[in-house]
Design a protein around this nucleic acid. Structure first.
Lengths: 344, 344
DNA sequence: CTGTTAGCGCCTTCAG
DNA sequence: CTGAAGGCGCTAACAG
């Protein structure tokens, strides 16, 4: 597959040389005026240069700049899936602080494929990004690129990843799972199930650990069929809930691996004539926008997605500046009580 | 604000020259072997080179490549706001076909600020992207960069923008607004209101035009207070609905500017004791994931967001390949009947 | 099939 | 405060 050059060679772009000639100075001076770092340039010279830049419509070439400066002012962000509003918020948080620091973002979507992720990392390294934020948890981190040697880009991980030893930003998912469960227990529930995501989802597993820990601590008997695995989305959760509801319902409350799962399951519950929260209470994770606008509204653990994104970006900036940063930055997750777990 | 270089100059990166030396060939041969276009390279030479690449952990520098090839295999995507799932889906569509064509995406979020957008375009041009997709409609397009002269990157617009004369991908929002309204009329409604987004939102205005046209055609009297403007999100819609509901409700059905508005308003309706759809029917636009998982589920116009994103990217690819493309590519928007507009 | 050699457009010492 | 010149890492003629 070959593409024609984006620019026909016949249309020579205006370069710094043209500006220099037009302004009657040397390229070095133009370069310095444009860089606008502290380097002294006479006010008048600067004005002449700026005029020429305007007149010639000069657009500096960041590729050349990057090549000689060995820095691109660009970072890579790898996300598993944007249809999950959680990641959209994370990305928004990253973008905010990136933009504030005049950094561009090269965005990669992996669709949860770890091969795609490896490939994306390779690509980003070729593009000489100054740093990388990898979002999405798993137990699968594995890449043969040592992030610290060879001057390769530093990596910050957002989410739990057991095999990654660089700096990471995480939510305290164990605590969150624990708190969600404790909330239900406090409401009098004893038969509580967990509608989980995929087993490979590290953040999810932590939530389940918290769930089990809380139950154990309250003397509940733990059985394997209390945790029902599936995927991240509404549809599958709807189906799982239907399967659950057709038998005699053995739970009075469900913790869902995330809000999308909760929403899907709640819809199924309603459709089955199960009253929420009277017959069945729900707690989710993420606090996506719609969770407070469904009825009954969804009680959820309020994952600070945007904050975490922003923090990850800040860490990356500090690493890029040569600072040492903490190996783990952990956010607690507050409970947001709403109707789906109200006393009935 | 200054940052330390991402890479200490002391650690010289391995370059194509090192590979050449290691493999005992010339840099040109290495370059050709790596490019892997049709250029003939002896099998054995190729093998030796690949071995050296592995051994030395050579990572080609795309900046240098871009500089000499005058192409970056990177495109820019500008989006108003990712917290709207609609744009997340558009972006996903773009990313899919971009990745399939080995193009990277530089992502920019404008928060609906047209200044930020101008700035982003400038940045993208400096980074010498091969093309740009601008998402989000408005009546405000204005940039002094002529997309066709100077070999600057071609632009494809996704969404309606009156002042932009390049190729665009759009949904037929007039038809969609018309169809949504016709659906309600067909259900027996005559007093229909429109819970709009901001007046500056071009796609939204088209929907309103369709709404008016449909009403007019069915002999309804049009008054200005049938359209209630606000922003794009749930919260504001909730407030507007509450204001509406406190007076004697003069509508039996509402068309909402998008699903988020519909969801917010429906929540308010429920809270006010208004029965949906019995007392008040709803139709939205976008078909975001949760719309089918709220109860009552939301009837909506199924905007083909991902398709449109993919198509915009395909158009851009064709332009980049030097092809001529249609100035407008328009998608029709199907109606998805669900519970919020069921006969009551 | 392979090698040599100019650039690509800018930054950055090193001298004025 | 300004200029000259080498180099960033790779590609693309042009010659073998």
């Amino acid at each position: 597959m070959s593409r024609a050059p984006a620019q026909p060679k016949t249309v020579a772009r205006v370069g710094i040389r043209d500006v220099a000639r037009d302004a009657g100075v040397s390229v070095a001076t133009v370069s310095r005026a444009l860089a606008n770092d502290g380097y002294p340039v006479a006010e008048e010279t600067r004005r002449k240069i700026e005029a020429s830049v305007k007149r010639l419509k000069f657009v500096p070439n960041d590729l050349a700049r990057g090549l000689s400066q060995n820095r691109t002012n660009t970072i890579g962000v790898i996300v598993p899936n944007l249809s999950n509003l959680y990641y959209a918020r994370v990305l928004t948080g990253i973008e905010d602080v990136a933009a504030a620091n005049r950094l561009s973002i090269i965005f990669c979507n992996t669709n949860h494929s770890i091969e795609k992720r490896e490939q994306d990392i390779k690509l980003l390294l070729q593009k000489r990004v100054d740093g990388i934020v990898i979002c999405g948890s798993g137990s699968d981190y594995h890449t043969h690129i040592d992030s610290r040697s060879m001057g390769a880009a530093p990596i910050v991980m957002l989410g739990r990843n057991e095999k990654f030893d660089g700096p990471s930003v995480q939510a305290n998912n164990f605590q969150a799972g624990y708190a969600a469960t404790a909330h239900l227990i406090e409401r009098g529930h004893r038969a509580i199930g967990f509608l989980a995501g995929p087993p490979s989802w590290a953040d999810g597993s932590e939530r389940i650990r918290g769930f089990r820990a809380c139950l154990a601590e309250h003397g509940a008997t733990l059985s394997d069929d209390m945790v029902i695995y599936g995927d991240f989305a509404e549809q599958d959760a709807y189906a799982r809930m239907q399967a659950l509801g057709r038998k005699r319902l053995k739970f009075t409350a469900l913790v869902a691996g995330n809000d999308r799962i909760a929403l899907g399951a709640m819809a199924a519950a309603v459709d089955l004539g199960i009253r929420v929260p009277h017959d069945l209470a729900f707690v989710g994770f993420d606090n996506i926008a719609t969770s407070s606008y469904v009825r009954p509204s969804l009680t959820t653990m309020d994952m600070p997605a945007q904050l975490m994104g922003a923090e990850a970006m800040r860490l990356l900036l500090r690493i890029m500046a040569g600072e040492q940063v903490p190996s783990q930055t952990i956010f607690e997750v507050p409970l947001l009580e709403r109707q789906s777990s109200a006393r009935s």
